[in-house]
Design a protein around this nucleic acid. Sequence first.
DNA 1: TTGGGATAATTCGTACTACGAACCAAACTA
DNA 2: TAGTTTGGTTCGTAGTACGAATTATCCCAA
Lengths: 149, 149
Amino acid sequence: MGERTGQQQLAAGLVRLGFLVQREYGEVSRQHDLTPQQAQLVCVLLGGPIGMAELGGALHLEKSSLTGLVDRAERRGLVSRVRDARDRRAYRVALTQQGVELAACFHEHVSRRMAALAVDLCATDQAGLTAAINQILIGHGVAELFTDD
Amino acid sequence: MGERTGQQQLAAGLVRLGFLVQREYGEVSRQHDLTPQQAQLVCVLLGGPIGMAELGGALHLEKSSLTGLVDRAERRGLVSRVRDARDRRAYRVALTQQGVELAACFHEHVSRRMAALAVDLCATDQAGLTAAINQILIGHGVAELFTDD
DNA sequence: TTGGGATAATTCGTACTACGAACCAAACTA
DNA sequence: TAGTTTGGTTCGTAGTACGAATTATCCCAA
C-alpha cells in the first residue's frame, strides 16, 4: 500500500523471481523424474567428477546431507563413487553414462525454460538484465563455471 | 564452451540468481527459527486469513501437503485455524499475534537482505533490473500482492 | 617413528517437505 | 432427494537437511 521505495520493490521482485525460477526448475526436474536436488547434483557433475567435500561447497550442503543425496543418485544409476587414487579416504563422485545423458538433457530443457521466462523482453532489456544479474552474481561469490550449480 | 548465446547466458544467470535468492531466504528463515516454507506461509498470511484451498494456490502446494505445514505452524503458535462462518467444511488460516510479529520481522529482514544483493548496482541499473523483473513476473502470473508469496 | 591433530566420509536420530490415493462431511444441483 | 463437487484430513512413501558421534586415513612435528 501507499509508498514503496525502489529498494523494497526490487527486494520483492527478487524474492518472487527466485520462487518463480525454483518452480520452473522443479517442474523440469519432475519431467525428467528427478528431484530438484538430484538435478542440481548432476548438473554440477557435468563439470567433471569431484570429491564429496567440494561437492558440499558447490551445493552448500553439509557432508552428512550429501551422503544420502549421492546414495540415492547412485541407486538410480546416475552417479558412481570412485575411490580417489592418492587419498584412500576420499571418493570422487562421477556421472555414469546414463547420468551424463540425463544431465545434458535436463540442462538443455531447463535452459530453454529459463530463456522463455524473458521472452517478452526486447533484446536490449535482455542484455541489460543479463548484465545486472551477472554483476549481482560476481558480487556474491557465485562461481563462474559454465554449468548451473 | 566457446560460444555462448545471450539466451544461454541469461538462462544460466536466472538459475543461479534463483539459487542465490533461495539461499539468502533460507538463511534469514533460519535466523528466525523458521523453515523457508513456514516463512513463506506466514508472509502470505500477512495479506489476511485465507482458506486452505486458496493457500494451496498461493504456495503451489497440494492440499495434502498443506495440512502438515499448517499443523506444524499451528503447533508453534504462529497460525490458527478458524472455522468459516458460511461453509462448515472450510477453515480459514490466520496469523496469531505472535505470528504477525514474527512475519513482519522476517519480512523486514529478508527485504533488507535482498536489497543488499543489488547494492553494487547504480540507481539506474537497479531501476532497470526492477522493471525487467516486473515484466517477467507479470508475464508469468505472479500475483500483484504486496507480500512476497 | 610415532603420536596427535586435521580431514574425508558415514551413520544415526530428528524434523520437515511433498505427493497421491483414499476418505469423510458439508454444499450444491439437477 | 440422489448424485456430484468441493474443502479438508489421513496415511504411506520417498526425499531433504542438519548436527553429533564415529571410523579411517593422512600429515606434520618432535
